[in-house]
Nucleic acid binder design. Sequence first.
RNA 1: CGGGGCGUGGCGCAGUUUGGUAGCGCACCUGGUUUGGGACCAGGGGGCCGCAGGUUCGAAUCCUGUCGCCCCGACCA
Length: 478
Amino acid sequence: MADNKKLVEEITPMGEDFARWYTDIIKKTQLCEYSSVRGCMVIQPYGYAIWENIQKGLDARFKKTGVENVYMPMFIPESLLQREKDHVEGFAPEVAWVTHGGNDELQERLCVRPTSETLFCEHYSNIIRSYRDLPKLYNQWCSVVRWEKTTRPFLRSMEFLWQEGHTAHATAEDAQERTIQMLNVYADFCEKELAIPVIKGQKTEKEKFAGANETYTIESLMHDGKALQSGTSHNFGDGFAKAFGIQYLNDNNELAYVHQTSWGMSTRIIGAIIMVHGDDAGLKLPPRIAPTQAVIVPIAQHKEGVLDAAGKLYERLSDKFRVKLDDSDKSPGWKFSEYEMRGVPVRIELGPKDIEKNQAVLVSRFDRSKTFVSLDNIEEELSNLLDKIQQQMYDAALQNRESKTSSAVSYDEFKSIIEEKGGFVKAMWCGDEECENKIKEDTTATSRCIPFEQEELSDKCVCCGKPAKKMVYWGKAY
RNA sequence: CGGGGCGUGGCGCAGUUUGGUAGCGCACCUGGUUUGGGACCAGGGGGCCGCAGGUUCGAAUCCUGUCGCCCCGACCA
């Protein structure tokens, strides 16, 4: 049975109400739960297992480029946060303050880190003396707190998990190289592991990070046509170094400021996985990060030999794959729907008929296609199927993005596409922030990025008609 | 922070208009029959009706206040 019948009644169909579909899936698959603190979520085992796999994949990639992990305090003294002007202004409205220790009021308020630039800077100013100390390539896995006005699970919570990399370099060139290198790491990770195609580019002045010289981003497109900033990499130049006095002696015995970068990816990316790949039956997890890659469902498990055979198959496969055997007394139909909803890439059905024929049935979550495979080479068949699903998911996501990407030359055309079709709209821009503001006011769409891959759609700004400088991706965003 | 909606067993809801023994579906537990797309029968456990005041013989229901959550906007990973 491979029709599109809705099997799980509790999930609101995407087409009916996308926001509700999103929260239904999260609740039904137990990725996270609301907590008693507004805007803070309990990440449940299934959700956390996805995060752990994301961590593993990213961490390995970071380390391959020479990055080391550290841990910084979660509190930042107010005076330290104040050091870099743009940075404070950007974050001040959304920081949480600690004012008391026990019953005593603190002499200086402590902010709960919304991000740790200032802490890394202070530390770097203490440990960097010579060009021989450079570069410093640090990363930390932690949570940060931002007092958000409105929140949504994974997409925007008041406390969220992430990694933040902070590097210090001798030269501007080294810093720029690192900034782009890490952007590429993110892009590679998203595309290869998460099967999410991304647009790489630079943020406009208006959209860049507080305190950065340049912000680079990878942007992905959700199923409902809204964009999601999926990872960012910033080049700070020597701005923070000057504010924090991070100086070193170069090989000419001259005092110089370091050049810094920072880059981050958060649990928000789990929201992207849900909204890029999911369908009305539930989650679809890319095999490379799925906590369970294949679930074995025994059929007629009360019958002689079935559970034995299923147990043996489990033992065999668990050497090579993340596999689960569900021998609970739920009906097979229930299990089929359940694991489909949870996005497990492959279901392995094993019943009396199969055992008789020395075979098993592999069913793909991607398209519900079934293949009967011999138990003799099931490892190979499963491995091939997982690879195939990974590729199919990427292709489908790319195709969806392409079909929701338009170009606009006139402003009327631009507005009607944003309003009626949504998605990414490529259009020329004069470089003036006024036009970004006007577009946002007229359409609620924002500039997503100035893509590295430029096209010359026309020579005039789509908004004001003045000479265009860059092609920009525009869209409504999360 | 504006606009809207909602708080009743774990979840989803009915009951509130017109005050009078707290109900339904799912989930959960026990036993049995089932098992290739969310099985069936029987029995069972579980609720300060968000919180605080008030009106009343009597409040889930009426009044006042308060807190929280969700959705839509402005701000943000």
